[in-house]
Design a protein around this nucleic acid. Sequence first.
DNA 1: GTGAAAGCGCTAACAT
DNA 2: ATGTTAGCGCTTTCAC
Lengths: 336, 336
Amino acid sequence: MVTIEDVARHAGVATSTVSYALSGKRSISEQTRQRVERAVEELGYRPHAGARALASARTNTLGLMLPLRPGVDVRVVMEFVTGIVTRARAFDHDVLLVTQAEDAALERLAHGRMVDALILMDVEAADSRLARAAALGSPTILIGLPDDPQGLQCVDFDFAAAARLAVRHLSDLGHTSIGLIGPPPSVVERGTTFAERLLAGFHGGAERLGLTAHVELTPPTHAGALAAVEALRRLDETPTALIVHNEAALPSVVDSLQMHGVRIPADVSLVAICPADVAQSQSQPITFIDIPAESIGAVAVEMAMARLDRPDAPVETRLLRPTLSEGSSTAPRLTP
Amino acid sequence: MVTIEDVARHAGVATSTVSYALSGKRSISEQTRQRVERAVEELGYRPHAGARALASARTNTLGLMLPLRPGVDVRVVMEFVTGIVTRARAFDHDVLLVTQAEDAALERLAHGRMVDALILMDVEAADSRLARAAALGSPTILIGLPDDPQGLQCVDFDFAAAARLAVRHLSDLGHTSIGLIGPPPSVVERGTTFAERLLAGFHGGAERLGLTAHVELTPPTHAGALAAVEALRRLDETPTALIVHNEAALPSVVDSLQMHGVRIPADVSLVAICPADVAQSQSQPITFIDIPAESIGAVAVEMAMARLDRPDAPVETRLLRPTLSEGSSTAPRLTP
DNA sequence: GTGAAAGCGCTAACAT
DNA sequence: ATGTTAGCGCTTTCAC
């Protein structure tokens, strides 16, 4: 193995000079820097990660705890992972993966000095991991918005604002009765706060604008989507606009409307709140509000890095603002 | 931070005794072992991963290179990841994630002594990573079966055997004309060898049994599935049995047959080759051959571990054998 | 069965 | 601007 001493000898300098030339932590004459770099190149030197971690108390590794329970949408999980890994590399960090299933994983990573910081995905309203994470002393970022963050940093999509934005868009088009095809009941029961926040935004927005609002929590199955659509159509004041916050059900909802001979957007306007690629893979261009999972992951990494730089910076929660992309699934309400 | 010296002092023994008591690498009297364990417990000691890696040349970490390119089925990717992480933990190893997108990732992990072994997912027929991986000197396991494994270990599902098994099952039921709804053309073009192997098994099996065989490479879209089904039904000798190896298209194929008034299995028998959960989420219980992604991941880890134990053990390729689970989508052919 | 001590390869004072 | 050196916390000889 090529060590820093080999490089120093080869370049005719001290080991510390090599270290500093590589880290840039003190000024080095251009000449020696070049000699060092050449030596590194010629010998194919790579710093030993363990040695570096031992000496510097920095691992350049981030711990990521993934949910692998049934019922989570793996496409979204992968988007988070992509955003996290990509952004971490930009900060010269790697990502160590652990699963929710392993009980002592957080302690192992933090106390064993395997990672500089932790990112927890899929945080619920009352999450038993939080108290333990807060006790670790490692910078920890939560993806999600628990009832009590216990002093930890949070990042998430602003689901309430997304719902309000969707409602306002439809209201502006003249719709006065709006249906929401919501997430599965199981998601709500599980205590995932994004569902609550979305519902709060939906009801709050509708009330403020004087609209009639109906909600159908919808299992992510074809039959579930069908039933939800039918339930909404059976109402006295049948909604002329639909908000779909359920990526699994979206295709079935569209199908189901077509089956009933309901035209989009002539008879019903439709706004989806889902990852952009889901909306864009529909046969008709859907008006949608993107759930930017990859960006959320990237922001989580940035927050972790900021915390490592300035450990006593104020703790904050960041909520990513929604944007609506217009497709051909929304139109002004036809006055009857 | 609690160090091994703290533990030694607390237990009244030498640091080496603590180390050995914990690793079991030399015999320790029952009494001192207990004293050490108590001290570990009381102080909450966790070995420093970097220090351990530096001293022992072992990181207890596995590197996993994931494909994040568009077009890979993320559900299957997540199944691999689950199998790998879970099995790695059983061997007291963690998993470090890198993406295909980063060019020098393999060298970084291996030469920087960040991992003990590497697992490469989604290996293609002619994969540029292989030569570089072979040059690393780290144990490397390939998931997939390239044309030239360059001396590296491989593990994959036996797609050829799966196709033969499906063909034989249908032949045994009296079917003489079989259609294959295959993977997207893009997958075949990309040089993913599983598609080739499946096609070879399909044609070989059909020929040996004297059956008529037709293939439709099928984009993973509703329209693609529809077109494929219609193409097969337009043939002179319309197939009375279908093999679907395209998890994205499976639901659409089933829908499309229903739309045409084709009953399963009365008019057409259907065998799917796909992950079990995809088959089981259909409304009708489909006869299927599972693609056991999680098991493949677990086996990859086992191969890596075996190699670390015995670095000069013979290199092998492991192909997981298919099993067919009967549902209600296959039935004897009605003799006209 | 146990202890003492020499590194593992690096960083970061402390020198000059 | 560069060199010297004392650790970081652990494993593993070597010695008893």
